[in-house]
């Protein structure tokens, strides 16, 4: 089976003056689908609630 790796996993390999988005690391899901449905994502890793001026870290 083919091994799938993000093309540039390490920050030191990133050229300057470009913009990057880190890869989603895993597919851990909320166990409760109700919670996921209301939250707007099934991945806790992607849960970034809008707080008006900044997002939770």
């Amino acid at each position: 089976m083919q091994e799938w790796k993000p093309q540039m996993p390490y920050p030191e390999q990133f050229p300057v003056a470009m913009a990057y988005v880190p890869w989603q690391r895993n597919c851990n899901m909320y166990e409760n689908l109700d919670e996921a449905f209301k939250t707007g994502t099934i991945f806790p890793e992607l849960n970034k609630p809008f707080l008006g001026r900044c997002v939770k870290g």
Binding site: Q24, C27, M29, L33, D34, A36, F37, I42, F43
Partner: peptide
């Protein structure tokens, strides 16, 4: 709810 999970897994 189930289809939402499917959509998210689809994108992942």
């Amino acid at each position: 709810k189930v289809d939402f999970a499917l959509k998210e897994l689809n994108l992942y």
